[in-house]
Write a protein that binds this DNA or RNA. Structure first.
Lengths: 297, 297
DNA sequence: CTCCATAATACGTAAATTGGTATCAATATA
DNA sequence: TATATTGATACCAATTTACGTATTATGGAG
């Protein structure tokens, strides 16, 4: 015969009431089975939990200790069920999120904050990394979801395009084209065209390079740039011009001008990616909870 | 249907083995009941704990959490049973001990240390107080056992005499009687007789006073002394003489001499006292574990 | 000394639990 | 395609449990 949760519960109520009939009533059973339950528990444990006569019922020292522990055990079972249920619903746990830096210019932070508010027991772990690393990390189970520039994906990775973003030309304020609001890329012929390093974001680099080549332009390879901000800063200093995502054309930059570009292909996709076999409800909640992104202007 | 310890145990083994047949073997049951047990547990919880096909068995995220908690719960039940059993045996808990200061000259400290060694999970709480306070504290459940000078006891307090101690006369080294080894109290006639305050230990004071009166002596009431050491120190300085427990006649005092006393009544009892209705096994262990005391010389 | 409140005991029954055997279903492998 | 492995399912028997009713035992209180 083993100790049961029921015995613990009965004993616990009994230890609060210190009265068999009242405790039995509270438990919606009659008094004899309650007596029996306690007796069996004591038999199993090998020592008395309560001293009782028809005049008083009181805990033994060992009973006091055991009642305390019983309460803890029952509470722990309860919280175990709750926590596990929350995990099962995707309301608790850890979720690792990868993102390319430019997501910070969109409303990823706000969206994640909103998700965090609606899922307070989920720990979001954020990793800034480029698209290639995110794909690797997904396959290695190091992240659960990535926010990337759309690229060809290996098997086992699903994706959803969140946004298609135009590229815009970035030139200094005093540039000959600065007064136009819309140009064709070929109009930039002869300019030094700056693009960040291919090693930093290969697919994106290749995309822009291909686009430039349709207009008979070549990126300048003498720069090893790691970040959009650097590109804009260099443009501002007259080092050259560039093609950048329109999300960058915010008012935080002065002395540079962003010009729309006519070419239809001057755009790229922002996508979220995840392992196709990842059925975690937490992930599903996140994917559903983050609808279209908007660019923060 | 409620969660059972058995279900937790089965699930726990399963979560370690990740293989139904092997886990069933380990549990000494056949495989089908194990499948059934897990299914019932999942039904009760409302979510899946394991994903399983004929090719693999693995924990869901919620299952991982729950397995962890289940282990904790089972461990807690185990330790609850152990700790409570120890308390029931008197091997764990708290025991408050009162004692009159002079017990420190006997081997109470060594005896308590021995008890502590054989009952490492019992916390001994020591309270130095006079006999009267100990009786009060016992009745108020503030202490469990007291070491006192034998006095009349109220109902509900049991006692056992541990030792009968002779009183000895204490005189300065240069005293006219110092060369004798044995005197009668009446030989001290005319000396200033010092006794510590009645308020400090009434019964003991009264006992000595009565003894002196049989020899037509009176204690000097101008001293308000709280401790035996003070009495001896005053004797040493020639302030008077005294009657003290023989346990004090140790070699740590110089320039004073302790003389045996002929009167048969020149003795008092050391006793342990406890509440008669206190059935705590811890107390019984202590009472049994502390046989006759010896005076430390 | 009787009564009253209360816990223990006796006993019967319905239900659940537990675990077995036999078999099925799914899937990877030879 | 046949086979082997493995978990799921169906079904049954035995046991245990859980609980109720009726009754008894105990120990203060009036």
């Amino acid at each position: 015969m083993a100790v049961t949760f029921r015995q613990l519960k009965y004993f616990l109520v009994l230890s609060e009431e210190l009265h068999f009939s009242r405790a039995a009533e509270k438990l919606n059973i009659s008094q004899p089975p309650l007596s029996a339950s306690l007796r069996q528990l004591e038999e199993r444990l090998g020592f008395k939990l309560m001293e009782r006569t028809s005049k008083y019922v009181r805990l033994t020292p060992a009973g006091t200790i055991f009642a305390d522990q019983a309460a803890r055990i029952l509470g722990q079972l309860d919280s175990a069920m709750t926590i596990a249920a929350e995990t099962a619903k995707g309301a608790a746990g850890e979720l690792s999120v990868g993102f390319v830096p430019s997501m910070l210019f969109r409303d990823l932070p706000a969206k994640l904050k909103a998700f965090q508010n609606s899922h307070p027991r989920v720990d979001l772990i954020l990793h800034e990394m480029n698209t290639t690393r995110q794909i690797e990390s997904l396959l290695e189970h190091k992240i659960d979801v990535g926010f990337v520039h759309a690229v060809p994906l290996p098997n086992g990775i699903s994706h959803k395009v969140l946004e298609t973003e135009r590229l815009v030309a970035c030139v200094p304020r005093w540039h000959r084209l600065a007064s136009k609001s819309r140009i064709r890329i070929s109009e930039l012929a002869g300019e030094r065209m700056m693009v960040f390093s291919r090693s930093f974001a290969a697919h994106y680099h290749d995309k822009i390079t291909a686009l430039l080549r349709t207009a008979n332009l070549e990126p300048d390879t003498s720069f090893h740039i790691q970040h959009w901000f650097t590109v804009v800063a260099l443009v501002k200093q007259g080092m050259g011009v560039s093609l950048v995502p329109s999300s960058l054309s915010s008012s935080v930059f002065s002395d540079v001008v962003f010009l729309e570009v006519e070419e239809r292909q001057a755009e790229h996709d922002i996508a979220q990616i995840w392992r196709s076999d990842n059925t975690s409800p937490m992930l599903q909640n996140l994917l559903l909870g983050l609808p279209r992104f908007e660019t923060r202007l």
